[in-house]
């Protein structure tokens, strides 16, 4: 049963990340996603201090705000201080991450977070933190409820805002011409990324979140030209990475998060070579046939 709980949690995280990742990589904002996933750390520590627990609504709201703040800061440095984009991203997220680590050291006694957990999470402990009903029945791990809720929110967000998200991603000029606010949807998307990052943080850590944001979406991007298919394929790739990664980690007796990240890379590699439309192997074949 524990295996199932861990794989389910990882799959829920992977699906949320994969859906958002599709928008990120098409908007050329993969590294902004990376930056947000690191920059939410001080927000997590502060929210933890104020609310005293890790899975509160306060934390999700705080996370959304920090994500928007990070995006805003990057854009501010780029547009107002005319710093090149890559440096604006690098300076912003390292600063916020450093602040987070220092906050953890200052409140070491009060905050139940350690640095290792921040980087690669503790998904193996997911089954231990269960919800017990008032009647005393075991309702299953809390993380599954949290991540299930987040995934539902993300799906509702994408379904209701599909037209706006689609247009602002592919044709921002047309979108603003028909009255869609590109910056509003930009910031909404970034808030969604930070909420996902924060809620996944505890179970999978900062790095796996980045891997799951980028790798499955990039895999799907190589397999199809249809955006709806891309969303579906990205989720599939994410779930597949979770499943194979888990057993890989069990086999090696190593970090589950690390193994899932590694598997998502391998799945990408396979798509890169064997994708029927964009794969290197079939491209070569077609060249030879010509």
């Amino acid at each position: 049963m524990n295996d199932f709980y861990i794989i389910l949690t990882a799959s829920l995280v992977a699906s949320s990340c994969a859906l958002l990742g599709c928008f990120l990589i098409l908007r050329r904002m993969a590294m902004v996603g990376d930056a947000i996933s690191h920059a939410v750390l001080p927000g997590i520590v502060l929210a933890f201090l104020f609310s005293g627990s890790r899975d509160s609504v306060t934390m999700l709201i705080g996370a959304g705000l920090i994500g928007v703040f990070t995006t805003f800061l990057i854009e501010f440095f780029h547009k107002k201080a005319r710093l090149q984009t890559d440096a604006a991203i690098g300076v912003t997220f390292t600063w916020l991450f450093a602040v987070g680590v220092v906050l953890i050291s200052i409140f070491a006694g009060k905050v139940d977070l350690d640095q290792d957990c921040v980087l690669y999470g503790e998904i193996a402990y997911v089954p231990l933190d269960v919800i017990i009903s008032p009647a005393g029945a075991n309702l299953g791990p809390k993380a599954i409820y949290v991540m299930g809720f987040v995934l539902t929110v993300i799906i509702i967000f994408i379904v209701t805002g599909y037209k706006e998200l689609f247009l602002t991603t592919f044709d921002p000029a047309y979108a603003s011409a028909i009255g869609i606010s590109t910056s509003l949807w930009h910031y909404l998307l970034m808030s969604a990324v930070s909420v996902t990052t924060v809620s996944s943080f505890e179970s999978v850590g900062a790095i796996l979140v980045v891997a799951l944001l980028i790798a499955p979406a990039a895999t799907a991007y190589l397999l199809t030209d249809n955006f709806k298919w891309m969303l579906a394929l990205a989720c599939t790739a994410g779930v597949l990475a979770s499943l194979t990664g888990y057993y890989f980690a069990v086999w090696l007796d190593g970090s589950i998060a690390g193994a899932i990240a590694a598997m998502s890379g391998i799945i990408f590699g396979l798509a890169m070579v064997f994708s029927p439309t964009h794969g290197l192997f079939f491209k070569k074949l077609r060249q030879v046939a010509h």
């Binding site: 690669y120 980028i214 190589l222 998502s264």
Partner: peptide
Amino acid sequence: RIKEDTAIGLVLSVFFGIGIL
């Protein structure tokens, strides 16, 4: 057809994941 920023993020996280493993 993957863009450079995606490639960087991908390589960064996957290599690091392997390292952690």
